[in-house]
Simulated assay, not measured.
Amino acid sequence: MPESFTQLEKDAVYRAIAQRRDIRHFIPGKIDADVLNRLLQAAHQAPSVGFMQPWRFVRIVNPDVRQAIVDLVEVEREHTAAELGERGAEFMRLKVEGLRECSEVFVVALMDGREAHIFGRRTLPEMDLASVACAIQNMWLASRAEGLGMGWVSLFDPEKLAALLGMPAGAKPVAVLCLGHVAAFYPRPMLEMEGWEQRGDLARMVFTDAWPAAL
């Protein structure tokens, strides 16, 4: 079949999935404009419910705006630590973002006017967010294939970030993405390496016909 993949191509897809990492450590270096465009095109080719394409990308080039985002993240980092109770100090020792060191910063947002899109969202309005997550995952896998690191930062107040970037009413930022060159990719997810959490057993997450009464 002309649509089929060779074994090498299939192996490359699974390798990108397995070796994708949420990167927090970057080294200096600009990202080629053609590569950056390929990453955005990969994101834009993501599936979306009702083909609504709800993703919007704001590239941050002004250093003052980047610093303002860093400040918002730091405020939320402290709030998160307070909510974590006895794990708060452990959390504060983690490196949770690479905004200062990365080459590129993008804020990914849900577009405004999403209520007009009913197809696939009448009973599950959150499918707009699921669609944006697919776009981010596409960009993540493409970044890994290009040998670039990407990190997803979610520690911020969405209303304050929306105001900072002048987003219209109804738009909502859902991710701050850090992109850049890396000295090496983590051999395992960073939070697993830091002992924060371990990957769960897939067998406990796959059911047949119904949710089990007890696990």
Score class of each variant (00 low, 15 high):
F57I: 14
F57P: 03
F57K: 08
V58K: 10
V58W: 13
R59Q: 14
R59N: 04
R59A: 13
I60H: 09
I60T: 09
V61P: 03
N62S: 13
N62F: 02
P63C: 06
D64R: 13
D64Q: 14
V65D: 05
V65M: 11
R66D: 02
R66S: 05
Q67H: 09
Q67G: 00
Q67L: 04
Q67A: 08
A68G: 01
I69S: 01
I69P: 01
I69C: 04
I69W: 03
V70D: 00
V70S: 03
V70Q: 09
D71M: 05
D71L: 10
L72G: 01
L72A: 02
L72P: 01
V73D: 04
E74H: 04
E74I: 00
E74P: 00
V75R: 10
V75D: 09
E76Q: 09
E76D: 06
R77A: 05
E78Y: 03
E78V: 06
H79G: 00
H79A: 11
H79V: 10
T80P: 01
T80M: 14
A81L: 04
A81T: 07
A81R: 07
A81I: 04
A81V: 04
A81W: 03
L84M: 15
L84S: 02
G85H: 07
G85A: 09
E86T: 12
E86P: 08
E86A: 12
E86C: 00
E86M: 05
G88D: 11
A89C: 04
A89Q: 15
A89H: 12
E90I: 12
E90H: 14
F91T: 12
R93I: 10
R93D: 15
R93V: 14
R93E: 15
R93P: 07
L94D: 15
L94F: 15
L94S: 11
K95T: 15
V96C: 13
V96D: 05
V96Y: 03
V96H: 09
V96G: 11
E97I: 01
E97T: 12
E97D: 15
G98F: 12
G98K: 11
G98Q: 10
G98C: 10
L99G: 09
L99R: 09
R100V: 13
R100L: 13
C102I: 01
C102R: 03
C102G: 06
S103R: 02
E104M: 12
E104G: 00
E104K: 11
E104Y: 05
E104W: 01
V105M: 02
V105C: 02
F106G: 01
F106A: 00
F106C: 03
F106H: 04
F106K: 00
F106S: 03
F106R: 03
V107H: 05
V107E: 08
V108W: 05
A109P: 01
A109I: 04
A109M: 08
L110I: 07
